[in-house]
């Protein structure tokens, strides 16, 4: 697993530390729900796929527009427990992003601020391992969005299906291909899904994307990992 610079070795311990240092009650109760030990087999772990639609790609300037999540396990994706929110970004929507996620000005006019749904959101992901496709969006956007609102960021482990895919392809790619530096196949969610026979979806709706990500992880696990693979091999 490509390890981020500041990935802690022990997320369970890290959560305890974060709880003690946090001044925000939502965050404290989020950290209090704890984190599984890195040696837990992936088949035993409660997972939650998370997806944001945003006003743009820069977490420092852009903000979250909608959030979709769906809890799952390696066995089942539970749509009945899926959740979706539209939130009002603290930055104007530009036409370009509207084209992508189709959430319009009128949709967000009556939407709450992220701060208002924060406790629900954190409650929905606490105690579970978050799964995303391309961790730099969800983790960093949530970090920055909280910084702006409560002056404090948030940290948690994620399983990144894009990183898993890169790693799997890297292993599969012959030395020759690497030496010749042949271009890497696409890492976009629909292209990754296609490699596992997963159907094309109408993407860029946060819930659908979350489900699409959950399905991709189930497929990747079925292909590349035994059911008792410890989660530390997967998260970062």
């Amino acid at each position: 697993m490509a390890i981020d610079k500041n990935t802690p070795l022990d997320w369970a311990k890290e959560f305890e530390q974060l709880r003690q240092n946090s001044r925000n009650e939502f965050l404290r109760s989020f950290y209090k729900r704890g984190m599984v030990s890195g040696s837990t087999p992936i088949a035993d772990i409660p997972l939650v796929a998370l997806d944001f639609e945003t006003t743009g790609l820069n977490s420092k300037h852009d903000d979250i527009v909608s959030i979709g999540l769906v809890p799952f396990s390696t066995h089942r994706i539970r749509c009945a427990e899926a959740q979706h929110w539209i939130v009002k970004p603290r930055r104007t929507l530009d036409e370009q992003s509207i084209v992508i996620h189709q959430i319009t000005h009128s949709d967000i006019d009556d939407a709450p601020d992220l701060h208002e749904i924060l406790s629900d959101l954190l409650d929905a992901i606490a105690g579970q391992v978050v799964v995303v496709h391309y961790r730099h969006i969800e983790r960093e956007f949530l970090f920055q969005a909280l910084m702006r609102r409560i002056g404090e960021g948030i940290r948690f482990p994620v399983i990144d299906t894009m990183a898993l895919e890169q790693e799997a392809l890297q292993r599969k790619r012959g030395i020759l291909a690497r030496l010749l530096n042949q271009p890497q196949p696409s890492m976009r969610l629909p292209d990754c899904r296609k490699r596992y026979g997963l159907p094309p979806y109408q993407l860029h709706h946060a819930t659908t994307d979350a489900i699409a990500t959950a399905e991709l992880l189930q497929a990747q696990l079925a292909y590349h990992y035994p059911p008792d693979a410890p989660v530390r091999q997967l998260w970062c």
Binding site: H75, R76, I77, C79, A80, Y196, E215, A219, A222, Y223
Partner: peptide, 14 residues
């Protein structure tokens, strides 16, 4: 109904 569905992936042969 769609909101009550569960999804599962099976590799060929399983």
């Amino acid at each position: 109904l769609a909101q009550h569905i569960e999804i599962s992936y099976y590799r060929a042969g399983r």
